[in-house]
Design a protein around this nucleic acid. Structure first.
Length: 524
RNA sequence: GGCAGCGUAGCUCAGUGGUAGAGCAGGGGAAUCAUAAUCCCUUGGUCGGGUGUUCAAAUCACCCCGCUGCUACCA
């Protein structure tokens, strides 16, 4: 089916840890992936968009025990919250993987076996059995150096996070990460786009340059995990069975010609939060190198949201649930807000005041008002049908060309995850259209030059059509309504229909216009 | 402490050697097709401070002040 001519695009979100309720941060990452996936689909590419949940580990087992249910029941419940989030925000993921599914377990064991057979760059086995000891905080699922610890109240020790730690010692398999430093540094040099933004690349490079220690990749102290093949007392350390999800969802270890793995791996883009960059740009490539599998093309780490200037935290009680945003502002308003408000990769602040300002300025006063005034003029003055254009003047061509070339002009920024730049470029066309409509005053032309009025309104309708098409990745639902109001057929809504290939046909009947984005008026 | 980065208009930021920019906010005017939305014009910055290199520095170098990230297994 998919010939060589069809490009593919595989985009992933992290799998979200089920010990947490979905919040604005999760929604943000998956939204960026959704916009990316929708964009590439409209460009005619073969897209696979994956998200899911991370469900193993000691903390999950303990939370389940505390709730008096089995880990499986516990993860079933919480995973569903994340699945619901994809519906709530209209995400178009092609799959939703859970690390507890048989396919993920099978993939994790296959990856383990491939790594276990491998020889690291220093000529030794890539995986070996040793023992791990250290100060461990269950709550953080993290080991800490002695130097980091503080004295607790009852003579115990506390992690920097305040979590109690205990000295643990257990047999553990290790991955010989220490042997992969040079290969990783060479990778960062050869593939400068692998780690983005560049500030993260610098951090990762200096981290690797500082020397890598071998990585403990199994535990015997709990059992809620993937059994290590051939030594079932051990379960895999959570990050190994988490990262493998990206290929498990493609059917790995099945990798024959025509398989999803063959079609989509390596990933074109792993979107991650800045806290898990290292896992994706150090451990994951090293695992793949050991298993002799291709490496992802790009890992992009976005920033954090603060809320009204404050860090989001459970103790402050200011964690924002995505459902709350959608209720307050509307679905597509929320999607636009998150993508437009902050350069992706930077930290940003969410405030109610600036949310309203942006939604009213960009959506109600911007694209919404432009659509409303144009469609109303056509409705009233052109017998509710697409007007007949005459010869295009230079200014007509300039506006049309700007609108038609949007896809071409924003693709580079889209590929760099500069979503706010993509939107900025689109909004400059909206501003151009508003300027055009005022300069040409079609409401005055109807008395002086009815033919010219038709041309002006046609140009505006065509501009709206292009805007509607290009904005679909960001606001799919509302842009569908806009394209409905322009009577654009379902098969003329992709990027190939931009320009004259999909031009509106004069005389086509148009439905009565309906507002796209209501203005938000604050109660005093 | 070490490494990396940031500090530009009220706010968020773009701009890496050649007469200071955008969006939003503020002010004035126009228009009235439209969700009182829109358009045009405009106020506003000694580009954190200092020294230096240069014919020329927000842009390069050094110093100082302030802030941030990373420094091993936490979205």
């Amino acid at each position: 089916m998919s010939g060589n001519s069809t490009q593919k695009f595989f985009v992933t979100t992290p799998i979200y840890y089920v010990n947490d309720q979905p919040h604005i941060g999760h929604a943000y990452t998956t939204l960026a992936a959704d916009v990316t996936a929708r964009f590439h689909r409209l460009a005619g590419r073969d897209v696979f968009f994956l998200t899911g949940t991370d469900e193993h580990g000691q903390k999950v087992a303990q939370s389940a025990a505390a709730a008096g249910i089995t880990p499986q029941q516990f993860t079933d419940n919480v995973s569903q919250n994340f699945r619901d989030l994809t519906k709530l925000l209209n995400f178009s993921n092609d799959d939703f993987i859970r690390t507890t599914e048989p396919r993920n377990i099978a993939a994790a064991q296959a990856l383990w076996q491939a790594m276990a057979k491998a020889v690291s760059p220093d000529g030794q086995p890539a995986i070996y059995l040793g023992s791990y000891s250290g100060w461990y905080a269950v709550r953080d699922e993290a080991f800490y150096d002695e130097a980091e610890l503080n004295d607790g109240p009852d003579g115990g020790k506390l992690a920097p996070s305040g979590a109690p730690v205990a000295w643990v010692e257990e047999p553990s398999y290790f991955f010989r990460l220490s042997a992969y430093g040079d290969a990783l540094l060479a990778l960062y040099e050869a593939e400068p786009d692998l780690v983005a933004p560049s500030s993260r690349r610098n951090e990762i490079k200096s981290f690797v340059k500082g020397g890598l220690r071998d990585l403990s990749i199994s535990r015997t102290s709990f059992s809620w995990g993937v059994p290590v093949p051939g030594d079932e007392k051990h379960v895999m350390y959570v990050w190994l069975d988490a990262l493998v999800n990206y290929i498990a969802a493609l059917g790995f270890p099945e990798k024959g010609e025509g398989s999803p793995y063959d079609r989509f791996w390596p990933a074109d883009l792993h979107l991650v939060g800045k806290d898990i960059v290292r896992f994706h740009t150090v451990y994951w490539p090293a695992f793949l190198m050991a298993a002799n599998l291709p490496l992802p093309q790009r890992v992009f780490a976005h920033g954090w949201w603060t809320i009204e200037g404050q860090k989001m935290s459970k103790s402050l009680g200011n964690v924002i649930a995505p459902s709350q945003l959608v209720e307050t502002y509307g679905l597509d308003q929320t999607r636009h807000l998150l993508m437009a408000e902050v350069p992706f990769g930077n930290d940003g602040d969410f405030s109610h005041k600036s949310a309203i300002r942006r939604i009213n300025a960009d959506l109600a006063n911007g694209i919404g008002n432009l659509a409303q005034r144009t469609l109303t003029l056509i409705q009233k003055n052109c017998e509710a049908a697409v007007p007949e254009p005459g010869q295009f003047a230079d200014q007509d061509k300039i506006l049309l060309d700007a609108a038609y070339s949007l896809y071409r002009n924003v693709e580079a920024d889209l590929r760099l995850q500069s979503f706010h730049e993509v939107l900025r470029a689109i909004w400059s066309v909206i501003a151009g259209a508003d300027s055009y409509i005022d300069r040409n005053a079609p409401w005055a032309l109807k008395k002086t030059d009815i033919a010219r009025m038709g041309t002006v309104l046609y140009v505006l309708a065509e501009t709206l059509r292009a805007l509607g098409i290009v904005l679909q990745p960001f606001m799919p639902e509302t842009m569908a309504r806009l394209l409905d109001q322009l009577a654009v057929p379902a098969d003329k809504r992709d990027f190939a229909a931009l320009g004259e290939a999909g031009s509106l046909v004069p005389g086509t009947a148009l439905p009565p216009p309906q507002g796209l984005f209501p203005r938000i008026v604050e109660a005093e």
